[in-house]
Structures are given as structure tokens and as C-alpha cells.
Design a protein around this nucleic acid. Structure first.
Lengths: 208, 208
DNA sequence: CCATAAAATTAACGGTGTTATGTTATATCA
DNA sequence: TGATATAACATAACACCGTTAATTTTATGG
């Protein structure tokens, strides 16, 4: 009897259709323009059917973002494995992060620019996954310090600040589209250079 | 006689009441929890009356944010006038910026973490005002370069990157409230130190 | 063929921003 | 003073939204 398997497969198929339809709306128009009714119309099902496959809209969007965030994680892992020099690794990772954000602005917004409400404690897998980028950063910083190429008294704080730095550029470029920015690649290059130079120059106790 | 003045005054009074009621909701619960109906209930008027005083919700929120953003601008001006040393001025300005954002998270979100839709071209005075922070930064950087204390080939890009850096920390701290952050003041101190150290260390053409 | 379970739909609730249409109070002028 | 114009405010309604409950349709196993 393969009937159960078939049903499970059909279930997954429709689930996939929902995600596909939602993704199309989401990447083009952003999370606010995704509505259960619009998704339903695209797949030609009733709006409430979606609730048989996803707990609510937040979970649906979370699924979409998690998939995309996975790309960032894999890219960072790839860089990690292919770049032995920790400083260069950090450099490449930072650039890859910003480029990722600019390539997937709507996913980036959900993962890094909105807070999950306290009631949906379990949710936010995409957000959790996004924060994983920090793990890559931390390990690189640790190695830099171990090799004596950076002088920071607090590795954790340094890693968090690297994250803050690249997130700052990413999010501003996403949100302030009409602002007269300097050339993007120059901006990114300079930001990475400056921050890393700062980390390599700094003394632990500057004034004594 | 004087009836017109009185009416204008009463008009302004009600306008003020609307703003006050809206602000209370806004600062406590955020922009999404502000609704015309809730404001109306608080001031004991019908929801649609608000539209006689504000074009729409966006304009109302914009008003609230603009007021608050003014505080940031004045603070930065104050620092500018009271801190002759441009490096120290930059330092203080950056710290003041982050502290402002953490003190007024909802206003900060509207001004710096959301994009205005293209249809509301005129609106977004708060956002425009917020971007004014960059002007303070730019002038300080310019002076640093003029005094030979920083070596950057592009002042505009450097200023924009300073903005990006502090915005990054500010916005992440606002949004990722449950994240295990290092000590805030240490984070901020280190971020400012690192970036400024990078700007002071850097050579214009590093590799040649 | 029928009972059962699964899947999908319809109806409805309470909420949103906003517009068009009424109503009421106030000020001006004959 | 009383009619009229006008400004201020309210009611009703539109088109959405996310979500839940109740209901119907569809497919399965006996």
C-alpha cells in the first residue's frame, strides 16, 4: 500500500507550491505585500488551506528566509574552508555578507532588521540561523589573535562589532535607496579595510 | 474679532492632543501598535477626525519622529560646538548617536530602519532630518584629514562608513534584544576605538 | 455501498487605513 | 433676532488583513 506515501508526497507538493507562490510575492514585494489571500489566489486554493500546512504567516515567511539564509551560511563555510589566512578570511566573509544582504534584501530584513515578538519564542529559525554568521566571524578573530595579528582584549566583543559594522552598511544600503551613496564597492572595500586596520593596530590598553 | 485666532489656536490644541496620544502609544508599543482608532479612543474623538489634522498615519508618525530626531541633531550640534578636537568630536558624536538610538528605539526604527515608499515622495521629513547626522560626521572627518590626523582618499565615503558603523551597532542592539551581547558600553567603546584607529592608521594607497 | 477520516471550503470575527456622506455646532450677515 | 454659510466632527462604508470555527467535499478502507 503506497497510498500513505503518495498522500505524504502530495502534501509536500502542495506545501512546496505554497512556498513557491509566497516566495514570488515575497522577494518581489516584501513581507508586507505577502498576504494569505494573495498566496491562495496564486495557487488556486482557499486562503485557510494554507493553515493546514503552516501554523501562521510568520512561520511561512520564516521558512522562506531560512532557506535563503542557508545560502549565506554555506557561502561563509566555503570561504572558511578555502581561505587559510584568517585576516583574508575575515575580509572575504565580510564582503560576502554584505553582498548577500544586497542580493536578498527582503530575507535580510526579516532575519536582521525586525524583532520577533516574545510570543513566538519557538519561531525565528531564520533569525537564529542568521546569527550563526557570527560564529564564523568569531573563529576567524580568535585565530587572528592567536597568531598575534590582532590585539583585542575581548574576542567576543570584537566579533560582535565586526557583525555590527557590516550589518550597518548592508541595512543602510537596503533601506536608504535614494540616498546619494558613494560607490558601493568602494564603500564596502573601505569599510572592511578600515575596521580590520583598526583591529590590527589597536593596543589592549591604549592610554596608560 | 480674534475669533479666527482662537479657532487657529484650538485647532493647534487638538492637533497637539492627537500627537500626544499617538506618541504615548508609539513610544510604548511601536508604530504597528499605533492605530487611528486607538488614538481616537484616547482623545475621545472619532477616528476620521484625525484626518482633518494629518494627511494620513504616515504623516502623523513622521511628525512624532521629526520632533525626536531634532533632539539628536541638537545634541550633535552641541557636541560640535563644545569639542574643538575633531577626533574627540567624532568619538563623542558616534557615542551620542548610538545612545540616542537606544533611548528612542521606535523613532530610530522609523527614521533609519524602514524605507519610505516611492509614492510618499514628499513625506519622510524625519528620515531626511536623520540623514542630517551625516553632515556633522562629514565636517569632522574633513577637519581630521585637513589636520593630517586621518588619511582617507574619499572623505564622503569615510563619513558614510562611520554612519554605517554606528548604525549597525545601534540597530542590532535594538532588534536583537535576546542576543547574548557583550557589555553594551564596552561594545560601543571598542567599536568607536577600532574604527577611528583604522581611519587614523590607514594609508591612501596601501598596496603599491 | 457505507462509514470514517482527511482535506478543503465557506462564513465569520475582529482588526486595519482610508474615503464619502451625513450631521451638528458655530460664526457671519440681513 | 433669524436665516445662511461654513467649519468641525461623526457615521457608514470600502477594501483589505490574519486567523478561527463550522461545514462541506473528497478519498480511503472495510
Amino acid at each position: 500500500m503506497g497510498v500513505q506515501e503518495r498522500r505524504a508526497r502530495e502534501r509536500q507538493e502542495l506545501r512546496g507550491e505554497i512556498l513557491e507562490a509566497a516566495r514570488e510575492l515575497f522577494v518581489r514585494e516584501g513581507v508586507d505585500q505577502v498576504s494569505m489571500r494573495r498566496i491562495a489566489e496564486k495557487i488556486e486554493y482557499s486562503p485557510t488551506t494554507i493553515y493546514l500546512y503552516f501554523k501562521d504567516k510568520a512561520e511561512l515567511i520564516d521558512c522562506l528566509c531560512e532557506e535563503t539564509l542557508g545560502k549565506l551560511d554555506r557561502r561563509l563555510t566555503q570561504i572558511e574552508n578555502s581561505t587559510p589566512d584568517p585576516v583574508e578570511r575575515l575580509r572575504r566573509g565580510m564582503k560576502a555578507y554584505v553582498e548577500f544582504g544586497l542580493k536578498h534584501p527582503n530575507e535580510y530584513k526579516v532575519a536582521f532588521m525586525t524583532e520577533l515578538k516574545p510570543d513566538e519564542l519557538a519561531g525565528g529559525r531564520a533569525k537564529a540561523m542568521g546569527q550563526n554568521a557570527l560564529n564564523h566571524t568569531r573563529s576567524s578573530v580568535k585565530q587572528c589573535v592567536a597568531e598575534g595579528r590582532m590585539h583585542v582584549d575581548d574576542v567576543e566583543a570584537a566579533a560582535q562589532n565586526i557583525w555590527a559594522t557590516i550589518h550597518g552598511l548592508t541595512s543602510l544600503l537596503i533601506v536608504k535607496t535614494t540616498f546619494p551613496w558613494a560607490d558601493r564597492s568602494k564603500l564596502l572595500e573601505q569599510l572592511v579595510d578600515t575596521h580590520i586596520a583598526g583591529l590590527m593596530a589597536e593596543r589592549t590598553v591604549p592610554a596608560l
